[in-house]
Design a protein around this nucleic acid. Sequence first.
DNA 1: AATCGTTATATTTGTTTGGATATAACGAAA
DNA 2: TTTCGTTATATCCAAACAAATATAACGATT
Lengths: 112, 112
Amino acid sequence: MGYRIKSRIWIESENNVLLGEGRVHLLKAIQETGSLSKAAKSLNISYKKAWQLLDSVNKSAKKPVTINSIGGKGGGGAELTEYGKSLVQVFDEINKNCWKFLDNELKKIERI
Amino acid sequence: MGYRIKSRIWIESENNVLLGEGRVHLLKAIQETGSLSKAAKSLNISYKKAWQLLDSVNKSAKKPVTINSIGGKGGGGAELTEYGKSLVQVFDEINKNCWKFLDNELKKIERI
DNA sequence: AATCGTTATATTTGTTTGGATATAACGAAA
DNA sequence: TTTCGTTATATCCAAACAAATATAACGATT
C-alpha cells in the first residue's frame, strides 16, 4: 500500500530512440507554435537541446517527421508532416493504454 | 515496420524510486552471491553505486528488503528478507506482463 | 589478540551532460 | 538591398554524474 507503478515507453528504430515522452512533447509544441525555437521556449528547454532532439527524431525515422524552413516570412519555421502527426497520435494511444494496463496491475502490489 | 516499442517500469514509494530494473538485478545478485560486494562485481558496477542503490531501496521500502551484516564469518554479507523476495517476484511478474501487453500494441505501429 | 572480507563512508578525479553565447546562412517582405 | 526571426552549428563553461581510491568499523574464527 502506498506504492505506485510508473512507466516510460519509447519507440526505437535500429537501436536509436525515435520517440519518447520528451520528443513527443517537443513535436506537439512545434505543432502548436510553428517553430522550433518557440517550441523550445514553451517547454523551457534550450534551443540546442530542442534541435538535437528533433534532429535525432528525423534521423531515426523512416520518413520525415517535420519540415524545417530557413528564411522567408517570419524567418522560417518548422511543421509536422502527416507522418509526424500520425506517429504522435499512435504514441499517445499506446501510452494511454499502457497506463490503463498498469493501473490494473497495481492491485498486485497493494497487498504487499 | 522496423520500429520497436521499449518500456521501463518502476515502483515508487512517496516519490522515491523503490524498485526498477537495475535495483531488481542487484537484489537478485545479492540473493545469488550472499554479499553486496560480490553482487556489484557480478554486475560490473562499482561497490559505491551498488551500495547507494541498495540503501535507497531499503530507505524507501515500508519494511526491510535486505539484512546486511558487518564482520563475522566471511566478513559479513547481505541477504534478502522474505519481503524483499516477494517484491522482486511481483516486479518480475508485472514487468513480464507489460512486455506481453506492448508486444501486442506493437501492431499499431507496424502499419506506419 | 590478530586476521579476514565485508559493510559503510568520505574524498578525489574524470567524464559526460547541458546551458550560455556567438555567428553564419537563409529568403520573404518592406 | 536592408531588415527580420528563424534554422543550423561551433565553442566555451558549469554542473551533474560516475569511477577510483582510501579508510574506519565490525565480529566470527583462528
